[in-house]
Amino acid sequence: MPDGSGFPFSTDRHVHLNGRDWGLLVASLALGFGLLTALPQMAFPASLIPPLLFMGIPLLSLRLVAGQHWVALFGRVGLRQVALMVLFGALTLVVSLSVGLLLARVAPLSANPFADRMQDLSAGQLAMLLIPTIPQLIGEELLGILPFLATLWLCIGRFGLSQGWGVICGVMVSASVFGAAHLPTYDWNWAQALIGIGSARVVLTLAYVVTRSLWVSAGAHVLNDWTGFLAAFAFGHLPIGADPI
């Protein structure tokens, strides 16, 4: 059973946002993502600045519109949640590999340029490259989960759909937004971004649906990506379809 009776800010009557609040959150996501992609690459520790802005701007906006209830997005963390991080991290990796292998039969895939940098690094350089990915991946989870919750609020509160249909629509919107955000990373390969990355996003969003905890989906995301990065560091390349998301 999920850890909460409702989805925060969408179906939980104790923590609710209105249309203006959701508009501000969506705008903050766009601003954070724009800064992440527009700011120049910098050496560590300055390399932490774009990911921290990507993560921090939406969180500050959430704190502004939800007050002390902003923490409802994250949920609790215990042994069950940690186990679910591992489970959904492994499931995301399996889905990424499977879909990637299928897509590779149809058209060539573009490599993740971040993963390609791993093979020539020392252990210390690898650590300095991976540390900024932690706030970035939390930011990516905000980019996946907040649109899901916004769509859920819209479907139920404005269109009168059931929660089940709201969840389905929310997962689809989350996957589409997340996949589209990765188009520049994968040389505008639409199939790879929308189908390959989008399918992995479905698994990560379902991790949130099951647990109501962004910590779980973020933990699964980190495990999936770091597995790919460490594989590239150790072996010099990634298996087809194993590019981190």
Results as ranks from 00 to 15, higher is better:
residue 132 P to T: 08
residue 122 S to P: 05
residue 193 A to C: 07
residue 183 L to S: 03
residue 10 S to D: 14
residue 194 L to F: 03
residue 78 G to Q: 10
residue 128 M to F: 07
residue 157 G to R: 15
residue 60 L to Y: 03
residue 103 L to C: 01
residue 92 T to L: 07
residue 14 H to P: 00
residue 118 M to S: 05
residue 177 V to E: 05
residue 208 Y to Q: 10
residue 55 M to P: 02
residue 239 P to Y: 13
residue 77 V to P: 13
residue 78 G to N: 12
residue 121 L to D: 02
residue 9 F to A: 13
residue 142 L to N: 02
residue 158 R to F: 07
residue 55 M to L: 15
residue 235 F to N: 10
residue 13 R to S: 14
residue 57 I to A: 02
residue 80 R to A: 14
residue 131 I to W: 05
residue 129 L to D: 07
residue 78 G to M: 07
residue 74 F to K: 05
residue 239 P to Q: 04
residue 213 S to C: 12
residue 165 W to I: 05
residue 49 I to M: 08
residue 132 P to Y: 10
residue 21 D to W: 09
residue 132 P to F: 09
residue 72 A to G: 00
residue 148 F to I: 13
residue 187 D to Q: 08
residue 104 A to M: 03
residue 210 V to Q: 02
residue 13 R to D: 09
residue 158 R to S: 05
residue 20 R to G: 01
residue 64 L to Q: 10
residue 67 G to V: 11
residue 108 P to M: 09
residue 10 S to W: 11
residue 41 Q to I: 13
residue 244 P to D: 06
residue 54 F to Y: 15
residue 135 P to V: 06
residue 184 P to S: 07
residue 224 N to V: 04
residue 190 W to E: 01
residue 231 A to R: 07
residue 7 F to K: 10
residue 199 S to N: 06
residue 125 Q to D: 11
residue 22 W to G: 08
residue 218 A to C: 04
residue 245 I to Y: 01
residue 142 L to R: 01
residue 147 P to E: 14
residue 239 P to V: 09
residue 119 Q to G: 12
residue 169 C to N: 06
residue 179 G to S: 07
residue 180 A to Q: 02
residue 118 M to C: 08
